[in-house]
Nucleic acid binder design. Structure first.
Length: 422
RNA sequence: GCCGGGAUGGCAGAGCGGUAAUGCGCCGGUUUUGAGGACCGGUGGCCCUACGGCCACAAGGGUUCGAAUCCCUUUCCCGGCGCCA
């Protein structure tokens, strides 16, 4: 949510962002609605003021046992007048709110201009691609040959779902535990949130375009399966006011993520890359505005370190304006190297600044007496197991079609050094 | 799922038809060499340049001249019963 003051006093700033994001948005309409609402508010407030005055008069007279018939008559007339005005303002208020909530976040100055992910700018590269001296296989080929995946899920559940079996299922949990251990050691608090949220809360946590098209709803309830643990974790603090010494809040969230991924076609649709259900370990920080950069960098480093120890080559890009999610002010994607030589997104680190906090009404007490300000919320993937497993399998494959397990996680895999056929 | 009780500011907690006490915490001021203490003031949101006004007692409706207070619906919390991994 953008402060209403910015919409009123600095519409050019918003126009700029919208142009940069290549977003169509009826800003003029929103400003007009706001103006109308303010006008109507004044009218309603004045009427209520008059009503309150007469009301007090009645209260006084009644106490003294005096006649109040005339005042009561007056009140009845005012009530009708007020009701009409109140209906009017309610209507404008709703329209105004809906548009306002839909306005995307302002962009951080660091965000480069561009349309699609093609325009993202590389910031960093780590690791050298392995020189394979044999014909490499994709992760799906490897997994099928090792009998650690079953595609029967397509038939019984649907496209985009898999059974992970034996060492692959184990690897999934190993990666989660590995990430949890590393982060809790750094002072992050472990959270397993509910895997469903009410629509009402969900809409505050994020800016979903087409709710019913993007999210899985749970039949006969008003709940939706979460797309990431980020959403239920920030929603945990809805309407909270932090005391200044309570910040920052650092969380490691674990949960499965459910995404319809409607409208994605083509390459990499098969296999672990784009699944409708996957497990993810997430980092989330709630902090004071002045610490944004510090914690943004901290989470970035955490995610990179986790993957460095897994010996998976990666590169970091800053998302261009058109590829930055509506809710975010700035996003860094970390892309893992895959066997076809391409780097693909596996980690996404973002700051929403106070955009999300405004939607959820999360504040903190500042130094000066009773002065409250919105907190900043930042979030980043630590490990999305499906994509990290994919990269791990492809980068650590052997001539024999086996998969070497990186040393850091061997202890989580019953000290196995390889995944091989039984 | 059924029956009963409840939801009030950062926290605790009164009010139970006449328009939100009080305590703690926090911020500022006075006093003090300083700290502490004592005292005074401030500590929800919105509109307004300001003066000032409006709203807010879980959410939404209703009754009433007037609702935190009475009624209905919903959500959540606490008991008791039931069901259950």
């Amino acid at each position: 949510m953008i402060p209403i003051e910015t919409i009123r006093n600095n519409p050019n700033k918003i126009k700029e962002t919208l142009e940069k994001r290549k977003e169509e948005f009826p800003l003029k309409k929103l400003r007009k609605l706001d103006e109308e609402w303010r006008k109507q508010k004044k009218e309603v407030d004045n009427l209520r003021h008059e009503k309150n005055k007469i009301n007090k008069k009645i209260a006084k007279k009644k106490k003294k046992g005096k006649e109040t018939e005339q005042e009561i008559q007056q009140m009845k007339e005012m009530k009708e007048q007020l009701e009409t005005k109140e209906e009017e303002i309610k209507e404008t208020e709703e329209k105004r709110k809906e548009l306002w909530m839909n306005l995307p976040n302002l962009l951080d100055p660091e965000v480069p201009e561009g349309k699609t992910e093609q325009d993202n700018k590389e910031r960093k590269k780590w690791g050298e691609p392995t020189e394979f001296e044999f014909e490499t296989k994709t992760h799906l080929e490897l997994a099928k040959e090792l009998d650690i995946i079953d595609e029967k899920a397509s038939e019984v559940t649907g496209e985009g779902f898999y059974y992970l079996k034996k060492d692959l299922a184990m690897l999934d949990y190993a990666l989660q535990k590995y990430a949890i251990d590393q982060l809790t050691e750094k002072g992050y608090e472990l959270i397993e949130p509910p895997f469903m949220l009410r629509e009402e809360a969900y809409k505050k946590a994020t800016n979903v375009d087409k709710f019913k098209e993007d999210m899985y709803g749970v039949k006969d309830t008003d709940k939706y399966l979460i797309g990431t643990s980020e959403h239920p974790i920030v929603a945990m603090h809805k309407d909270d006011v932090f005391q200044k010494e309570e910040l920052p809040k650092k969380y490691v969230g674990i949960s499965p993520c459910f995404r319809k991924e409607a409208g994605t076609h083509g390459k990499y649709r098969k296999g672990l890359y784009r699944m409708h259900q996957f497990n993810k370990v997430e980092q989330l920080i709630i902090c004071k505005p002045e610490n944004e950069e510090k914690y943004f960098n901290e989470m970035q480093e955490n995610a990179e370190e986790l993957h460095r120890k897994l010996e998976i080559p990666y590169r970091v890009v800053i998302n261009c304006s058109g590829d930055t999610p509506k809710t975010q002010a700035k996003t860094y994607d970390t892309e893992l190297l895959m066997v076809d030589g391409e780097y693909r997104e596996a980690i996404s680190n973002s700051t929403s600044k106070d955009y999300q906090a405004r939607r959820l009404n999360i504040k903190y007490e500042k130094e000066k007496y009773g002065e409250r300000e919105y907190v900043y919320t930042l979030n980043s993937t630590a490990i999305a197991t499906s994509r990290t497993m994919l990269a791990l399998m492809e980068n650590h494959q052997t001539k024999e079609g086996e998969i070497k397990i990186p040393e850091t996680i061997q202890s989580y895999m019953n000290n196995k050094k390889k995944i091989k056929s039984e």
